[in-house]
Simulated scan of single mutants.
Amino acid sequence: MKVSHYFEFEEHVTGGIAASVDHQRKMLDRVGVEYTTEPTLDADVLHLNVMGPRSVWHARRARQAGVPVVAHTHVTAEDFGDSFRFTNALAKPLKPYLRRAYGLADLLVCPSEYNQDLIRGYADVPTTVVSNGVDREKLAGFESLEAEYRERYDLSPPTVFLVGHVIKRKGLETFVETAHRMPDVDFVWFGHMDRSLKGRETRRLVDEAPKNCTFTGFVDDVRGAYAAGDVFCFPTHEENEGIALLEAMAAGKPVVVRDIETFSWLEDGEDCLKVGGGDDGPGDDVDNDASGVDDGPGDDVDGFVAAIDELRDADRRAELGANAAARSEAFSLDSIAERYRSLYAELA
Rank of each mutant, 00 (worst) to 15 (best):
A179V: 14
F218M: 06
W189C: 00
R152E: 11
F232L: 13
A244R: 05
V166R: 00
S196V: 14
L266N: 04
V188G: 04
E151L: 11
V231D: 06
D207K: 13
R203K: 12
F175L: 11
E270C: 11
E173F: 05
L162E: 02
V256Q: 01
D221W: 13
E208L: 14
I243R: 02
C213R: 04
V176A: 09
T159Y: 02
A250S: 15
G242E: 08
S156Q: 13
V176G: 10
D230P: 07
W189E: 00
D207V: 12
D230L: 10
K168S: 13
E239L: 04
W265D: 11
G224R: 04
P210K: 07
T174N: 00
M249N: 00
L266K: 01
L205Y: 08
F234C: 07
D154C: 06
Y226T: 12
D221F: 13
T214K: 14
E261G: 03
F234K: 01
D271P: 14
A250Y: 02
V256F: 02
T178V: 09
A147G: 06
F175K: 03
C213N: 07
I243N: 04
W189V: 02
L205N: 12
R150S: 14
V188M: 05
D194I: 05
S156Y: 00
T159Q: 08
N212F: 06
A250M: 08
L155G: 07
A250R: 00
E261K: 09
T262Q: 13
V188Y: 01
A244D: 01
L246D: 03
A250Q: 00
V185D: 10
F234P: 04
K211C: 07
V176R: 11
E146D: 15
V256N: 02
Y149L: 09
F232V: 10
R195L: 14
R195S: 13
E241K: 04
G252P: 03
R169C: 11
P210Y: 06
V206Q: 08
